[in-house]
Amino acid sequence: MKPFAQDQSKNPPPANWLDRLLRRFSRFAYGVAVLLMYTLASTALGLALAPALWAWTQVRPWLRGLPSPLPWVASGFTLSICFFVFGLTLLLVIPAYNWVLPTRVKPFKGGYYTIHALPWFLHNGLFYLVRFTFLPFVTLTPFGIWFLKAMGMKIGRHAFINTEYISDPQLITIGDDAALGGSVRIFAHYGGGGNLVIAPVTVGNRATLGLACCVMGDVVIGDDATILPQSVLLPGSRVGSGETWGGVPARRIDREEMARIKAEIRGMTEALG
């Protein structure tokens, strides 16, 4: 096998001539796609920066007339406001790009370097522009919920989402009154061996995902279920209604075992006290 050759055994047949070209020159096509993504990202960031830059140019001449050290204090305050203007504008620009461009992600199993993976690549590339810049500042606000919904994430009433570590929002469904704890990682894909699997994730009504747990693609969590902190739900996991799962990899924990765990924790707490 040639170096860097891709395993095509699990790939569906090429969709068209462009798909065949992408597979034949996969490394080159990937490099071009990354450069195009950088260019597209630059236009989105530029549009979001424009109102903030305009506001700064309007305020800056007035700041020069202030006695020292007020110009430095006022400049810092104004630039901070400009940052939030940029971030809130970005929350509008990225969903608009996502709506106009071919980002309709569908379940898929096959190679990374196929035309089927392009919407997934583009959708996440746009989403990450916000996730790694401004989303942490609005995660627990209506702005954050609005942005996730605008990117295609299905979120029920009164759902509590205390994490920005999300990928593939278009394929994620969160039920009514569900709670995602801090630093929960949830994404609708997984891969390995040169192959990519894109599969939806569903979190049921009133389900609770504990601190920093990880939910991978092709996972269904039933109503009223609980995922313990730091647990990892592997692809294909099906958590039944009202069940408690925990561990790495996560498994079902029955009531008797959970009662023993709680008793041990109480015992250790009392001993330390």
Rank of each mutant, 00 (worst) to 15 (best):
166 I>L: 12
178 A>Y: 02
34 V>S: 08
155 I>G: 08
152 G>W: 07
248 V>P: 02
20 R>V: 05
101 L>M: 10
205 N>G: 01
185 R>T: 03
43 T>G: 02
13 P>S: 14
38 Y>A: 15
104 R>W: 10
217 G>Q: 04
124 N>T: 01
141 T>F: 14
52 A>H: 02
121 F>H: 11
269 T>Y: 13
103 T>P: 00
182 G>F: 11
137 F>G: 03
169 P>D: 05
28 F>C: 11
228 L>R: 07
40 L>Y: 02
130 V>E: 04
103 T>W: 02
272 L>I: 08
208 T>Q: 08
223 D>V: 05
167 S>G: 07
37 M>S: 10
69 P>T: 07
127 F>N: 01
211 L>N: 10
229 P>G: 02
145 I>T: 14
265 I>A: 15
15 A>V: 13
67 P>G: 07
231 S>L: 01
211 L>M: 15
213 C>K: 00
206 R>E: 09
230 Q>G: 00
13 P>Y: 15
253 I>L: 15
229 P>S: 00
233 L>V: 06
176 D>Y: 06
240 G>V: 03
9 S>F: 10
22 L>Q: 02
130 V>Q: 09
79 L>W: 14
54 W>T: 10
29 A>P: 01
52 A>V: 06
16 N>V: 11
268 M>E: 14
244 T>A: 03
8 Q>P: 04
38 Y>G: 07
121 F>K: 03
174 I>R: 04
37 M>F: 13
161 I>M: 05
241 S>C: 15
42 S>D: 13
254 D>H: 11
222 G>I: 04
143 F>W: 15
140 L>F: 12
72 W>P: 00
168 D>N: 15
218 D>E: 13
193 G>C: 05
50 A>E: 09
44 A>M: 12
155 I>F: 13
62 W>D: 02
50 A>K: 09
19 D>Y: 07
270 E>M: 12
51 P>A: 04
33 A>C: 11
203 V>K: 01
54 W>I: 13
125 G>A: 07
96 A>H: 07
231 S>K: 02
67 P>N: 12
129 L>F: 14
159 A>L: 09
184 V>S: 01
178 A>E: 01
59 V>H: 06
210 G>C: 12
52 A>F: 04
59 V>L: 14
137 F>Q: 12
124 N>K: 01
53 L>T: 14
185 R>K: 06
235 P>T: 02
223 D>E: 08
208 T>K: 12
227 I>F: 01
42 S>M: 15
8 Q>V: 14
196 L>K: 01
223 D>A: 04
49 L>N: 10
117 A>N: 11
173 T>F: 05
119 P>S: 07
77 F>E: 08
22 L>W: 04
181 G>Y: 05
48 A>K: 03
63 L>R: 02
16 N>P: 10
265 I>Y: 14
237 S>K: 13
129 L>H: 00
236 G>E: 09
99 W>D: 03
272 L>F: 12
219 V>D: 01
210 G>T: 10
159 A>R: 05
140 L>W: 07
